[in-house]
């Protein structure tokens, strides 16, 4: 099955990778790559495929993370119920703001989503009675069917399965009638409209869906780390996610994975530069945008195609 070739390769890599991971530190980095990859996949549906933007996605991630912390701690919810509750809350919030927000385009849309993300981050920081304020709060452990999940090695498989499923599902979606309409409204909004695509509804739907995605990953990541701070909902985290989409490649499923892997690894690799890491990081991003403006995976794919 040619269609699923990429998926098989990813599955093989995920299966074999633990053999190459020497210790918990490396497991942790890979897990973070996988968490980012899934959030970036959802964001790429909105940005790359539907041609919209969200500079507030870390806000949705943050709601999920805090739902995983607050609902079990203060209200005794099961962590899985908390995850679902947080995701539904996030989806409801996204749906509420989607209609007015998606009347806007381009820079205005960027500003509106930016504002939304910042508001969420501020609420999480200020509602100290519930969220622990700037210090954050502990997250109770996630148990599944009587097993407590702990240790990077167990979590690795949870996130690996999660990533594999997400890649499979996103590719399905993109190829489905819904996905086709989404890509079409990116290509020509008016063309999509006159064949019957309710453009406003599709934009709202994919926004809500990718927010839901981000929230689930926020919860899982909080469960994994065992602690949340308001930083997860930070503006900088939103920017990081958008950068991963762009570097990996807009409208590229595997680009999302590659972007997340690279930009999660890069700061680690640069850590030895002592003080210059941020500058180097910025410089690398600029080089990327100048020489690979379409993103890594689409550019390389096009090159391979041509050289055949």
């Amino acid at each position: 099955m040619k269609r699923q070739r990429g998926l098989f390769v990813l599955a093989a890599v995920l299966l074999l990778l633990p053999l190459a991971l020497p210790n918990a530190f490396y497991y942790d980095i890979v897990i973070r790559m996988m968490i980012n990859a899934v959030v970036v996949l959802g964001l790429n549906l909105l940005m790359g495929f539907a041609g919209q933007i969200s500079l507030g996605h870390a806000g949705f991630f943050g709601i999920g993370a805090y739902a995983a912390a607050i609902l079990p701690t203060r209200y005794g919810w099961h962590p899985l119920a908390a995850m679902l509750g947080g995701a539904l809350l996030t989806a409801a919030l996204a749906a509420l703001v989607a209609r007015p927000i998606f009347r806007l385009r381009g820079h205005y849309l960027a500003m509106a989503t930016l504002g939304l993300g910042i508001i969420i981050a501020i609420v999480l920081k200020n509602e100290g009675a519930y969220t622990g304020g700037p210090d954050g709060m502990a997250v109770p452990a996630l148990g599944l069917f009587g097993f407590a999940l702990d240790g990077e090695k167990q979590w690795y498989w949870v996130f690996a399965a999660n990533l594999l499923f997400s890649v499979w599902a996103c590719r399905n979606l993109v190829d489905s009638p819904f996905g086709r309409a989404l890509r079409a409204l990116h290509g020509s909004e008016i063309a999509a409209q006159v064949v019957g695509v309710d453009v406003a509804r599709y934009k709202a739907a994919i926004f809500v869906f990718s927010a839901f995605f981000a929230s689930i990953m926020g919860s899982l990541s909080a469960d994994y780390v065992g602690f949340v701070t308001p930083n997860v909902a930070d503006f900088f985290h939103s920017i990081e996610l958008v950068t991963m989409v762009v570097v990996g490649g807009m409208a590229s499923i595997f680009g999302s994975v590659v972007g997340a892997v690279l930009l999660t690894a890069l700061p680690q690799a640069l850590a030895t530069l002592e003080g210059w890491e941020t500058v180097t990081f910025g410089a690398i991003l600029m080089l990327f945008m100048i020489f690979l403006p379409r993103g890594l995976v689409p550019t390389l794919a096009a090159r391979c195609w041509r050289s055949r």
Binding site: L173, P177, F178, V195
Partner: peptide
Amino acid sequence: HLALDRNLLKGL
């Protein structure tokens, strides 16, 4: 477009 099932979850 309109002749098809456009459900997001079914597509997923």
